[in-house]
Design a protein around this nucleic acid. Structure first.
Lengths: 180, 180
DNA sequence: GTCTATAAGTCGATAGAC
DNA sequence: GTCTATCGACTTATAGAC
């Protein structure tokens, strides 16, 4: 896990951080290089184009997403509650990659849109294993996505209206889980 | 309502359309001028900076949002269902302004983030008049925002997974509205 | 009011020294 | 591997003709 040259990881980390904290427009190759502590030419040795840099962020998302599905599938509270609960907690490795790729997707980057669709499908499949009512499962998915919509607002890292009411929100999820 | 010079409206309309259809990055002043049928210099006579152009889009959002609150408050189905239902219907004047300002906000534009917070607060207040349970109202808001999260994906204009299941989704909203 | 021309700066990417 | 230097394209904004 720590074999590849250190510089590559530092660059991806800097790129993802800039996407999360300052948006896609600010995440230029020059700014990324400066934050990673290398020169622009040094960055381009490891990532020959901006497209390859974006692909690096997508790879990180898919890798951490697979790990997350393991945790979600074996969570004592069940996949649905696990999903909604972790939708509000920003700061983990998966969240950082997710938000970074979300920013790329919202900027029109097609491979990022595709990656997010795959991630979303993985979540929905697990939730539907627990919540048999298809439309209740979809409503729960939308609540989680609504929370991501909020955290995707620049400057509002985990300061959303709903973060502090998480326990009450999970009760609403319980009501959706238990059919009429 | 139709007093101000026609060119200004054409320019705002072109700017909003480009934000919606091709994203923030493509909505340059040059491209906006071309789409509005004026030259770059002609555009800058009406909007002296890109910031003022963005403010024009925000003004359009706040104006149409006030009109929407009237409809939402007097909707026979109630504000909550009206809100979720109209979250999936893209194409109206408000939706265009909302999506345009959302793109600006996601690009890090602070005045747009502030405007969206105000719009969101207006919606939540109306929903809470109907749905007394505060947390049920918040869950309904999140479902609507989850739908907006999907429509905010470039290239997926109203082709989301949930658009065709709207009737079933509204039944889930009904369950949240009627307390336990 | 609307245009052309251009200034001034930034972006991604290349070339070549060390 | 990492750097400096620089190119060509693009973006916002200004100046001034009509």
């Amino acid at each position: 896990m720590s074999r590849p040259p250190l510089a590559k990881e530092k660059i991806i980390d800097a790129y993802v951080s800039m996407l999360c904290e300052e948006g896609e427009r600010a995440a230029t190759m020059e700014a990324t290089a400066a934050r990673a502590g290398v020169s622009k030419g040094g960055l381009l040795y490891h990532f020959a184009s901006k497209e390859l840099l974006a692909q690096g962020a997508i790879d990180g998302l898919l890798r951490t997403h697979e790990e997350d599905l393991q945790h979600m599938g074996s969570a004592p509270e069940g996949p649905a509650s696990y999903f909604v609960r972790t939708s509000t907690v920003i700061g983990g490795e998966l969240d950082r990659y997710f938000l970074a790729v979300l920013r790329l997707a919202q900027g029109g980057h097609e491979p990022s849109v595709k990656a997010l669709e795959d991630v979303q499908e993985g979540w929905l499949n697990l939730i539907q294993l627990e919540v048999k009512d298809k439309y209740a499962a979809e409503a729960i998915m939308l609540i989680g996505e609504g929370l991501y919509y909020q955290t995707s607002m620049p400057g509002s890292w985990s300061t959303g209206t709903f973060g502090k009411d998480l326990d009450h929100l999970l009760k609403q999820v319980e009501r959706l889980k238990n059919g009429n």
